[in-house]
Design a protein around this nucleic acid. Structure first.
Ligand SMILES: [Mn+2]
Ligand SMILES: [Mn+2]
Ligand SMILES: [Zn+2]
Ligand SMILES: [Zn+2]
Lengths: 152, 152
DNA sequence: AAGAAAGTTTGTAATTATTCTAAAGTTCTT
DNA sequence: AAGAACTTTAGAATAATTACAAACTTTCTT
């Protein structure tokens, strides 16, 4: 199916994958082989800009884009990307995880009716007088979730 | 404090349930009948002071206390208590909910290794310059979770 | 390029936490 | 006491996620 073979392997990849090149680099840097599945998922995730997706959502998008990827691979990939620092996992509701393409310091509005997440830039929330963590523990992350609703 | 022993209407209940009386009242006030199961669970939850439990944990405790309660009832009760404002549900990890007996304004340390929650009094965290919620939405709650770890 | 090693994908089974159902039991009202 | 209303429960059903092992792809060696 793919013109994988012959000629100059590196040059060929670089040519046909011009827009993917940066993504390929990011994957390689993370120690992940740039497979068809990972590249497609990376495009779906990172090209549209900041977003928050669930595994099922991403799977639907892949299907809609005529890309065959199993749900198992969706989960594998989301976790590997998270591990590699390309994504951040956000837990807000019991039973489902969101994966956030914005890995910079920021917080969230959570719209309860729609299950939708919206970024709040890190500078827009100031946490004053955060208490010392208990004996010998280090803060690994601080999450602020502002739950909002439209009904009263 | 005062021995407000009224007529014999509910005298029997009052007598045998001396220490439960306040709990019975709280349940009645919430429109919940004070059943054996709910009373036992309420004692396990509220007598030891502020705590954070999962459904399974509470179920184990009930079993350990020789109280037969089905897991379905544990879930029913936790949700009814939450609905009634006696508990608060806290979601931190995918796949499990914690129920918090402290329903006052406060936040949490989450110890990643143990899955343990610790309260941070509300006054000990100041959220400055919280941005306006998007058009027509009201803030229903703000949750701050400080994830701490002992390994680096 | 060929072969081997290493890593990846995937269908399917398994797990986990939670919710649903409807029948049997309990509490409340009159 | 008797009926209405509510509650409990065993067990089935869901939903999201994870585990597995075989087949496949990519990368490394030669
Ligand atoms: Mn996860
Ligand atoms: Mn819940
Ligand atoms: Zn975000
Ligand atoms: Zn708490």
């Amino acid at each position: 199916m793919s013109k994988t073979s012959h000629a100059n392997a590196q040059a060929g990849a670089a040519l046909q994958a011009r827009p993917f090149a940066p993504i390929v680099q990011r994957l390689r840097q993370a120690g992940l082989r740039p497979t068809r599945q990972r590249l497609c998922l990376a495009r779906l995730l990172f090209e549209p800009g900041d977003r928050h997706v669930t595994a099922e959502q991403l799977h639907s998008e892949a299907n809609a884009a005529r890309v065959e990827v199993s749900l198992a691979t969706i989960y594998n990939t989301l976790h590997q990307f998270t591990e590699a620092g390309l994504l951040r996992e956000v837990v807000i509701e019991p039973g489902r995880s969101y994966f956030d393409t914005n890995v910079t310091n920021h917080h969230h509005f959570f719209l309860e009716e729609d299950g939708a997440l919206m970024d709040i830039p890190g500078e827009h929330i100031a946490l004053a007088q955060l208490p010392e963590p208990p004996a010998g523990l280090k803060v690994s992350r601080v999450d602020v979730v502002v739950r909002v609703t439209r009904g009263k």
